[in-house]
Amino acid sequence: MMLPQDIQQMIELGLPDARVSVTGDGHHFEAEVVAREFAGKSMLQRHQIVYRTLGAKMGNEIHALSLRTLAPDE
């Protein structure tokens, strides 16, 4: 079972300069990620960047993840 802090740590490792907040109940999670890498990117591109930090956990241990992705100036 994944914990919110596990997901937060994985995102922070993949996006070291990001501000990350994750909440959840072990099955459904919500994450807010603020990262410079998102500047000029579409919402889909931003989500793909976050999904890459989670790798194979996405769709397996992490069943549902709601994302809010922002560039620092948003």
Results as ranks from 00 to 15, higher is better:
Ala35Ser: 15
His28Pro: 01
Pro4Ile: 03
Ser42Met: 09
Ala39Lys: 13
Met43Asn: 05
Leu70Asp: 05
Gly26Asn: 11
Val33Met: 01
Leu54Gln: 10
Val33Lys: 04
Glu32Asp: 08
Glu61Ala: 14
Leu15Met: 06
Asp17Cys: 02
Pro4Arg: 03
Gly55Leu: 12
Met58Ala: 09
Leu54Ser: 08
Gly24Ser: 08
Gly40Gln: 09
Ala56Lys: 11
Asp6Leu: 04
Val50Ser: 05
Ala31Arg: 01
Glu61Met: 11
Val34Tyr: 07
Arg36Lys: 13
Val20Cys: 02
Glu37Ile: 02
Gly55Glu: 13
Gln8Trp: 02
Glu32Phe: 00
Glu61Thr: 10
Val34Leu: 03
Asp17Gln: 15
Gly26Ser: 11
Glu74Arg: 12
Pro4Gln: 04
Phe38Gln: 05
Leu54His: 07
Ile62Pro: 00
Ala18Arg: 01
Thr69Leu: 06
Pro16Leu: 08
His47Lys: 04
Leu54Met: 09
Ala35Thr: 01
Ala56Cys: 00
Val22Leu: 08
Gln5Tyr: 11
Gly55Ala: 14
Thr23Pro: 01
Ala35Leu: 02
Arg46Ser: 13
Arg19Tyr: 05
Gly14Cys: 11
Arg46Gly: 09
Val34Gln: 03
Asp17Arg: 06
Lys57Leu: 10
Gly55Thr: 11
Ile62Gln: 03
Tyr51Gln: 06
Ile62Arg: 01
Ile49Lys: 05
Leu44His: 13
Gln48Lys: 15
Ile11Cys: 03
Ser66Cys: 05
Asp6Thr: 03
Ala35Phe: 00
Val34Phe: 04
Glu61Asp: 14
Leu13Asp: 15
Gln48Tyr: 01
Gly55Tyr: 11
Gly14Leu: 11
Leu65Asp: 04
Gln5Glu: 15
Thr69Gly: 07
Ala56Asn: 10
Phe38Trp: 01
Met43Ser: 10
Ser66Ile: 07
Leu70Met: 10
Leu13Pro: 00
Met10Glu: 09
Gln45Pro: 02
Val22Ala: 08
Arg68Lys: 15
Ala56Asp: 14
Lys41Trp: 06
Phe38Cys: 01
Gly40Cys: 10
Pro72Phe: 12
Gly55Val: 12
Ala18Gly: 01
Glu61His: 11
Leu3Phe: 15
Pro16Cys: 14
His47Trp: 11
His27Val: 13
Glu74Lys: 14
Leu44Phe: 15
Leu13Tyr: 04
Asp17Glu: 15
Glu37Lys: 00
Pro72Lys: 12
Arg36Ile: 04
Phe38Glu: 03
Phe38His: 01
Ile62Trp: 07
Ile62Val: 11
Leu70Val: 01
Asp25Leu: 08
His28Gly: 02
Ile7Asn: 06
Leu65His: 08
Thr69Arg: 08
Gly59Gln: 08
Leu65Ala: 06
Pro72Gly: 05
Phe38Lys: 00
